[in-house]
Design a binder for these strands. Sequence first.
DNA 1: ATTCTAACA
DNA 2: TGTTAGCA
Length: 147
Amino acid sequence: MIGKKKSLKADIIIGIGDLSKMTGVSARQLRYWEEKGYIQAVSGKKNATRKYKFEMSFKVQAIKRYLDEGYTLAKSVEQAEKLRKKFEIWKKFLVGKVQEVEITDTQHNYGVIELGCVDEEQKKKIYGVVDENGCHFELRDYAEADN
DNA sequence: ATTCTAACA
DNA sequence: TGTTAGCA
């Protein structure tokens, strides 16, 4: 195990003041949320100044979003966690199944997403098409060397 | 200057 | 939850 660089994310560390400013959640709330176990600071020494991973700001923002929609704090945390899990599933699907994305219109961000074979025998692939009409699926024949 | 805990008009 | 006070 020499090169164990699983992630290329820089581990940015921020203080409670910065986290508060960038999320709009008060420091009082952040401390309370941590006390309740909803968020966590890195290496939680009991009496040191709190340090948070930058990624925590996304969770805080998500919780605040649901809070602003009228959910209770507990429910907001629940929803934020559910959102995170759904995103993980989306990520797995995208990384696992999307083979290529062809840009068809730079001006309007239209394109075609190659989602792979539906049937190996019939040489058909399914595509996700984004165009002026919105988006839809298409089943197309494909050549062995199409590029 | 900033963050900490604890407590409360 | 905000907002203090008194510390580090």
